[in-house]
Amino acid sequence: MTARIEPVVGRYAHLELEGKAHRVYFEEAGQGIPLLCLHTAGSDGRQFRAVLNDPAITQHYRVVAFDMPWHGKSSPPAGWEKGDYELTTTRYTDMIMTVARELGLDRPVVMGCSSGGRIVLDLAFKHARALRALVGLQSSAFGTRYYDPYWLNHAEVHGGQACGAVAYGLMSPLSPEAERWETVWHYMPGGPGVFSGDLYFYQVEGDIRSRLGEIDTSVCPLYLLTGEYDYSASPADTQAAAAKIMGAKVTIMKGLGHFPMSENPDAFLGHLRPVLEEIRSTTL
């Protein structure tokens, strides 16, 4: 065998969500403190390929990235053809806590990006004691609906191309071309209505502004890392949320955009490694 094989292992977990059987795909690498990674709306766990492949992280962390049901290699539940997919705060939070429990992740660090960075804020006040630390990438307390996701799931618009076009612009023009287009590719095979179903949570239902004051970072530390080129969850959006959360630690990542872990892995890892090192040395 001459191929270079990554240390990342992909498997399927069978678990119940909302009373329905689900087959959920996840990838993992490393040993140690569980680090559960949440991909962005309309994409899948491949976005965390560099984190899963970083020995500096995997020597201390068991990194797990799962594809949310309906995304990537995780199927929707039986009967999906009869209704629309729509993500909500409760569904998302319950999904994350169920996946963590069923995969045996004890007090994991949870890191999510974009809609994943939003739900991290919900976890911060609902499940702080069950989590070791939280890392929000491109976190905001609410999303402005500046374009209409109606067109992302329309029979006369190619959903893959339209979703890819939305993702394309959110990245930094300074990020490497190949990594940017790979990130676009992760958006193009999404199921019909899945990205827009996630955006229901991100842009409509999941407004968490009124709950930010309930977050206690002395129970569960909260790190917020945001790329400066993101106009969906901009540095100003992250800073506005952080201003209402005592103890939240904000890093603005110069030259990065909305998908830092995927669009420019090397630059992102430079920001993430010290955060994970601090979590490892200051939390139990």
Partner: peptide
């Protein structure tokens, strides 16, 4: 940042 894309 803020002027990088049509949607920006």
């Amino acid at each position: 940042p803020g002027w990088s894309d049509l949607f920006a």
